[in-house]
Amino acid sequence: MTMISRMAFLVLALAAVPAAAEQSGKDVYGKVCATCHASGLAGAPRYGNAGDWAPRVAGGVARLYQSALNGTPKGMPAKGGNLALSDAEAKGAVDFMLAAVKDAARPAAAQAEPKKAEARKDEARKADTAKDEPKAAPVPAAVATTSAATTEVAAAAPADVNSFNRLLKPVSKRNLPPPEDGIHDPSSDGTHALQPPLTAFGPLPKSNAGNRINWVEALNQKKLNPRYDRLDPKAEPVVMDLNIVREVKGSMPDVVYPHKQHTEWLDCSNCHPAIFIPQKGANSISMAAILMGEKCGVCHGKVAFPVSECRNCHSKKKELAVRPAAAEPAK
């Protein structure tokens, strides 16, 4: 009897949850969103902070809904990590947070530029209701599928733990889709038509810097086969396999320059004779010059792997440094 009544109660309770679960935006905010959006954890736009929200609102309410439902590569998990929420509840929470910003934004921004603010809202509304829906949809959808894993990681570990180091890019800020990357104009339709890098980078071997792609390895593994000729897809590169060793001062390992990896991508005329005189001892190269974008720095530090990857070039241990260590175990 008690067992049955308990079971019945449980079933009733379970059945009641979805029915009673139509929580208001405010409730959802308090239970779920506030964890990050109250304090701005992991770069989340803070509740009631107009400055944090302004660039996001400018992208349109439809995109904010998408971010709330599917998560973002910056670290926002889908539905704030609480997948039990219905779509309507998640959207309600977005509306609740937006309402606070609209109120807060008025005294500060709207007084000075009421027309601009209104225009922005109108744009957002238009984007919400009419044409932008299909246009905006593919971008967040693509991001959601490919970066689901990174989003989870970013959410699980506090993403910005290392942000005290201004030179270290946190995971949440790598390989962002064009509308969020800061140099593309999110208000341009072209920006939303561009491919987000992560959707292309999936199968390519990873590295720790630059595009986070090991481009040379991608060629080696035949994951990529970029054309060597503009028109002829079958043209083969003229590869020259010759290593040049450059002895360097101090304790840094010597530099081994491989012609092979370079000629797989480039033509001789790209480097010789303008950047490097093709003669032994004729080129004086320094890290200072490279940092300023000369010599190797014409590419390394711009498109090829950056100078932070010291040991990619400084890869040949000096004999002197090896000898004492080798002598000791012999005794």
Binding site: L194, Q195, P197, A200, F201, N211, I213, W215, L224, P226, R227, Y228, D229, R230, P237, E264, W265, L266, D267, S269, N270, C299, V303
Partner: peptide
Amino acid sequence: PHWFHRMRFRCKVCHAD
């Protein structure tokens, strides 16, 4: 976007040809 182009063409195509 350099990354997009280098997936399709080697540096040589644009920078030499």
